[in-house]
């Protein structure tokens, strides 16, 4: 049995649930927040993608993605992307073109269905898998997954709320902004240095490769 097949809301599910899956709703909320903070371009990213996901859920889209590349190609592409972004000026048109192009390619990859994993990707999962096979049948929804989901959701929500509150408290004046800096305010001077930008890019791209492995890229 394939452990994590591509999951879609069933045809018999209520219409609203079919159209608005939890992550689609998260994108809509994020897009609306971007409008609130006065970033219409950023809002458009989230709201357009949310609309595409809803259209896909309604069966209105025919695009099935480009397929997932091999891990070696992903690593090479990530390295090239990093080198380009080190060379081009920050906040410039060239950076916009590079990041924008990467985003379009990534959307095409992300749209592809995940292939069934041949074996667990992480060492911990392989250990768990071996123990489970030896001891008992695999449960339909492991409690460890549930606990992890609750904990990570709590951390993410807490971080987002802290960021939103900081942003709102910093709106009245530059002095207020200095007293309640958002993450952007804190990281901006770091990214203005070459070392800071290289460090940021390294972490950002390592996370990309790691995330694409979760999609089934081998």
């Amino acid at each position: 049995m394939r452990p994590y097949p591509e999951r879609r809301t069933t045809e018999r599910a209520p219409t609203l649930r079919r159209l608005v899956e939890p992550w689609t709703l998260i994108l809509v909320i994020t897009g609306l927040f971007q409008l609130l903070r006065g970033a219409p371009v950023d809002a458009a990213f989230f709201l357009v993608i949310a609309t595409l996901l809803m259209a896909d859920a309604a069966g209105l889209l025919w695009f099935a993605g480009t397929g997932l590349p091999r891990r070696g190609l992903i690593v090479v592409t990530a390295i090239l992307l990093g080198l380009l972004l080190v060379l081009v000026p920050r906040h410039g048109a060239a950076a916009g073109i590079v990041v924008g192009t990467a985003g379009i390619g990534l959307l095409a990859l992300a749209w592809s269905p995940s292939p069934p994993p041949q074996s667990p990707t992480s060492r911990a999962a392989r250990v768990v898998s071996a123990r489970v096979v030896a001891a008992r049948p695999v449960p339909a929804r492991p409690s460890g997954i549930s606990r992890s989901a609750i904990a990570w959701a709590a951390i993410a929500i807490a971080g987002c709320l802290w960021e939103v509150v900081s942003f709102l408290l910093g709106l009245p004046s530059p002095a207020a902004e200095a007293e309640h800096p958002s993450i952007s305010i804190l990281l901006d001077p770091v990214l203005d240095t070459s070392e800071g930008r290289i460090g940021f890019l390294a972490v950002w791209l390592i996370v990309l490769v790691w995330l694409l492995r979760r999609t089934g890229a081998r």
Partner: peptide
């Protein structure tokens, strides 16, 4: 479950996969 294992499961749906990568 470690984060990688959680994401292995979560990113099986297109909306989660697209959302997280976005």
């Amino acid at each position: 479950a470690p984060l990688g294992d959680l994401l292995d499961r979560v990113m099986a749906t297109r909306s989660a996969r697209v959302g997280i990568l976005l």
